[in-house]
Nucleic acid binder design. Structure first.
Lengths: 332, 332
DNA sequence: CTGAAAGCGCTAACAA
DNA sequence: TTGTTAGCGCTTTCAG
């Protein structure tokens, strides 16, 4: 911040005066939609440069009824699934002339509602929301005056969404384990308030049953308390007499691996592990973790691209589901 | 998006009409700064509720010359140091009635400049920037019409900053290794275009020299190409005949650990490792990684708090430096 | 305590 | 091609 910090930034009238034309001419020259005489153009450009004029997007927004602004609400950006999506979304928005507000709901649907209100007061043109686990309300969403897309977490099948194919994920994990002959698979589920974890679990089990497993052979453990940990799950994993674990995320897989190794259980000799998200760290571990990768950056990009189409009233894919793949490591 | 999506959202005049008062009275009632007759107040509140009125922050901003909006520019939010800072910053901003734009510079100073321009066009009241590694330009920053704080990465000592104490970090690592009697420490540096890595390295070396190490015993390796990897560093680490490595980040530490284990080198028996950032994964590894923790969320919060003070022209701490601590694991 | 009127910076008819 | 004018939604004098 320099001495001229208080000096009001130049407006379109300043430019107009400097160039000896009217404000509308400046407006036209800058928008480049309506032809302007080359020589005036030059004078205007000179004036703009001289004054270092920055058009006020606020004023333009007020006039045009659109702020060219979008909102992205996530529970917690330090959860590694969100940064990738945020990056993809922001990049796409930027490339189309939009900027994005980031806000955190802290997994609290009341705060989330307030954030939506705040964003609406800022006249965002659309919203991307990874909604809080509890308290989703379809009616509230339906009443929003701008397009909204459910990002990563889908709570309603009708409303627009952009998610990873959880059926496919459950299937990938299950058939990988089945193919390698593991007998007593365990799936550790995430917060069951999130449909995505229910779907993943159901599909995992369904695939195993189809492959001929008896339901007695399959164990479901609730790992929602141990998203960033896994260590707390170790006892139940051991107790389940499993030979293959599908964790709900990589950190959990890591913790379980550590716990099992500490208990002198061999990986994958005694117990195999599949992680989820395929963070960069997976292949840096010893043993490297087999993990399923979600193309989150791409998902964020697609979601944003669809949102922008909706905003423009163009036909758009509103039900986006991307495919994942399994990255084999040394734990299966 | 519902059927009423096109229905223009209600304005202050709608509320005024509904309540049978003038717009100025509504404005006063809502701002709560100027007294309004209780009965009018009630009618206005009713009208607001009935119409579900949302004041336009755009219009207010235009009128008041401030958008109550801030900008946060980071190279890449998927680098795990940034989400924590972003979270802290956004939370603090929100609690003071501000919202924040997030943008990515992709470590490109030209793009960064453009983003700054875009944010200024949106009339942000201030900026938090983790600037691109190359191309920092003091003059450009000085000319900005709003307060800016260097976040995490400090390129200029005079300009406001909020960073982690790199001298202390180098010292923590060095004295930890010295105290445990390691003889041939290696420091793997990050991108030397970033002053923070230079400072960390210098302080590490300085501390070792003071502790009586000869400079021959200390090795500096450039790890800037291997931030998310470390594996590529393994050969040089082995070649250095070191017995203790201070990595530039945890992922790198992880990769080096994996490489050393693969080469049948014991950790910490043959080689000790200290990581950096103390990601949650550190204590889930086997062996758990000794790592230095930066209080990044807190830093983000402090930075934002200071920025907001600057915006209000209040005296503020503009040179913020937070302390870190070493989290002992099993690799030293 | 309340209303009328001006204006923040910009764009878009409508004229010229 | 250019200027004049009105108005986006809001706050804020200035009068009552």
């Amino acid at each position: 911040m320099s001495d001229d910090q208080k000096k009001r930034s130049p407006t379109i009238s300043d430019v107009a005066r400097e160039a000896g034309v009217s404000t509308s001419t400046v407006s036209r020259a800058l928008s480049r939609k309506i032809p302007v005489h080359p020589s005036t153009m030059t004078r205007i450009e000179a004036a703009v440069a001289k004054l270092n004029y920055q058009p006020s997007v606020l004023a333009r927004g007020l006039k045009e009824g659109s702020s060219r602004t979008l909102g992205l609400i996530v529970p917690d950006i330090t959860n590694p699934v969100f940064p990738a999506a945020a990056l993809g979304a922001e990049s796409e928005a930027l490339s189309q002339g939009y900027q994005v507000f980031l806000a955190h709901s802290h997994e609290d649907s009341v705060l989330e509602s307030q954030l939506i209100q705040l964003m609406l007061q800022r006249k965002v043109d659309g919203l991307l929301i990874a909604s809080a686990a509890e308290g989703f309300c379809r009616e509230k969403w339906l009443q929003l005056p701008v397009p909204v897309i459910q990002l990563i977490r889908k709570f309603d099948d009708q409303l627009p969404y952009a998610i990873c194919d959880q059926d496919q994920i459950g299937q990938l994990a299950a058939s990988h384990l089945a193919m390698r002959g593991y007998q007593r698979p365990v799936i550790i589920t995430g917060n069951q308030a999130l449909p995505l974890y229910r779907q993943r679990k159901d599909s995992f089990i369904r695939t195993l049953l189809r492959a001929g497993y008896s339901s007695d052979a399959i164990t479901v453990l609730d790992g929602s308390q141990w998203r960033n940990e896994g260590l707390g799950m170790v006892q139940s994993v051991i107790a389940s007499k499993t030979d293959a674990v599908f964790a709900s995320c990589d950190m959990q897989a890591l913790g379980i691996a550590r716990g099992l190794l500490a208990a002198n259980i061999k990986i994958p000799g005694d117990v195999a592990i599949i992680g989820m998200d395929n963070l960069a760290l997976c292949h840096l571990m010893t043993p490297a973790i087999t993990s399923i990768r979600q193309p989150l950056k791409d998902l964020g990009k697609k979601a944003m691209s669809s949102l922008l189409s909706m905003i423009r009233d163009q036909s758009a894919e509103t039900h986006i589901k991307v495919s994942c793949w399994l990255n084999p490591g040394e734990t299966t």
